[in-house]
Nucleic acid binder design. Structure first.
Lengths: 200, 200
DNA sequence: GCGCGCGAGTGACGCTTGTCACACGCGATG
DNA sequence: CATCGCGTGTGACAAGCGTCACTCGCGCGC
């Protein structure tokens, strides 16, 4: 019997996934949580074999949750199930020691299958995403990331400078750098591209 | 027996919802589709009582699908199930004659309940969203919307002008209008705000 | 100690944006 | 018919943006 905890912020999807897994005779859904912190508490109480978690959740994200499990060396496998086919996310997930990474685009049967594979000690990584993940590294450095994030929220160079205690000119230099590295024409495209790749 | 067709682009969520609904003894999932066009074809073949559809799907969106059903006066109720609590979306959905509008944030039991209500001829609208929907009207006109959409993709005034067969100055006038109406400082914020409200 | 790279800042250049006042044509309304 | 509103276009201006060449200081390796 594979004992599973489910973390997913959208209640309807959570309920539906739970129904889906409970159809399997060798899988038991112990419980579910609507955010990372709740999942962390349940985790310690219920001690499941596998945690199935989304990435985007209020408060603690699925990636941070996986990191925390790794740091505490808990004997719990992690499977990430997410909407986002962002190579950067998969990379960070692997660094956090997760055993599975599936897309919500994948057929529903894959989930139970992945659970079994992981429970047996294997790994279940979306194959085409795995390729992309190693093909392209994040070219941005920390400053460029910070600046780009704020620029994407509509802040001007001046605003960003104040927020980061930099000079207005330096901010524009970083933005220019980022735009150049990403091969796009302006900050908006740069933000969109970086975000889509999961570099944020 | 309530006969249901499911339209949802994310295969895993689709499978999970299907499993969820099939647990109910009075509900039968006839089939499912992964985009709007596929749903439209299935609809005519299977003639379900109720269509449960997401909004964001490749090609034809759930809203457009609902409009099409309304125009053809098909005897099929529509329930929208979406991630987005955007007042503008609900508004457009109601204009398209849908009977239900649920958020994926809502508890999973609500879906079956909503299906029954709608099948009985009632309506199932997320209550708190219903309030917001009438509080704020979309201040943008068609041109402003088009221009803002393209601006949000990083296109310059010149690019947008070419795309819409307008002059470069006119595009800037529209953008300025939109920025003013939304009370923000630049195109990026304008895009974000409009998008969040569902005015897009 | 010297040079090197790197983070940060400066100043200048030309282009893009955001704003505004104004003009034109056209359909609706009086 | 005159007039209004509306969509569109123009021209001008200031501010912001993207780029580049250059500077300064600091830590690191040789």
């Amino acid at each position: 019997m594979i004992r599973v905890l489910l973390a997913e912020d959208q209640a309807m999807v959570r309920g539906a996934l739970s129904a889906l897994l409970n159809l399997e005779s060798d899988i038991e859904v112990l419980g579910s949580a609507c955010d990372g912190e709740a999942a962390w508490r349940e985790l310690q109480k219920l001690k499941p074999d596998v945690l199935v978690t989304d990435i985007e959740m209020p408060g603690l994200t699925g990636l941070e949750l996986a990191q925390r499990i790794q740091r505490h060396e808990l004997p719990i496998k992690v499977i990430i199930v997410t909407t986002f086919a962002r190579p950067g996310f998969l990379r960070r997930a692997l660094d956090a020691g997760v055993s599975g990474y599936l897309l919500k685009d994948a057929p529903a049967e894959n989930l139970a299958e992945a659970l079994r594979t992981v429970h047996r000690g294997g790994r279940a990584i979306d194959p085409q995403l795995a390729l992309e993940a190693w093909s392209e590294a994040d070219p941005l450095n920390d400053r460029e990331r910070q600046v780009l994030r704020l620029a994407g929220e509509g802040q001007s160079a001046g605003d960003i400078a104040t927020a980061l205690n930099l000079s207005h000119g330096t901010v524009r230099n970083y933005l220019s750098e980022a735009i150049g590295k990403l091969g796009v024409a302006n900050r908006i495209e740069a933000y969109r591209l970086a975000r889509q790749k999961g570099w944020l």
